[in-house]
Amino acid sequence: MKIAVCVKQVPDATVHKRLDPSTHRLDRSGEGALNPTDLNAVEEALRLRDAHGGEVAILSLGPERAMDSLRKALAMGADRAVLVSDAAAAGSDLVATSHALATALGREEPDLVLFGQQSSDADGAVLWAAVADRLRRPMVSQVAELTIEGGTLTGKRQTEFGYDVISAPLPAVVAVSDAINEPRYPSLKGIMGAKSKPQETVSLADAGIEADRVGEAGSKTTVRAVAPPPAKSDQVKLEDDGSAAEKIVEYLAEKRLI
């Protein structure tokens, strides 16, 4: 079985995130890391490969340095990594990014495409749906348990009130939640071995992606202005000496919120 995992390099959790006022984009100059739920997707792909055979390819659209983060997936055990990187792709929104990934996936022809549920920077949680739509493939999201038998996948999907169990024929697209597994730590052997695994950085032209359908040219949204969130004001810190509940009620009443 051929599994492709779409991943994203996001600012490391310890980096203070900042929007660049001139480009209106997230400042990505600080340390990067693989998006947290993408680690769950990689882990699930490795388990499926180990159970069913086949290969795990990692796919990403991003700046060249994103390969450092893709290497973590290789160190965990993925077989190869493909990074689509091109100056013309910078600033791609959902529509443009989904076009780029769908085109690259079209060439790979995987049986299963895995995504992490959402990225920790943009937090859109829709990219997988857009990619599945472009590929005209069934899609299951928020998956907390995944099994594959024959040519059919069964996903246990977390909902507000419990679980939906959904089956779909392969090829298909699945977005996993962080409840699906505990991602492994890459072993030292895995880390040392990652450098000898295939790692391709390809341009838009190499990947067969039309330049005018990605980047700002291919994006359907425009960021008109960015501003930092307003400073929190009017905070009250209560130390609980047993009367905190009463004090909270008092405070809310005083603010006429209850």
């Binding site: 890391a33 450092d68 973590k72 160190a75 730590y185 890459p186 030292l188 880390i191 040392m192 450098k195």
Partner: peptide
């Protein structure tokens, strides 16, 4: 090196 960074991040997380 990127390997050394990955080792640092892995041990730090562990």
């Amino acid at each position: 090196t990127s390997e050394q960074e990955l080792i640092r991040d892995t041990v730090r997380a562990f």
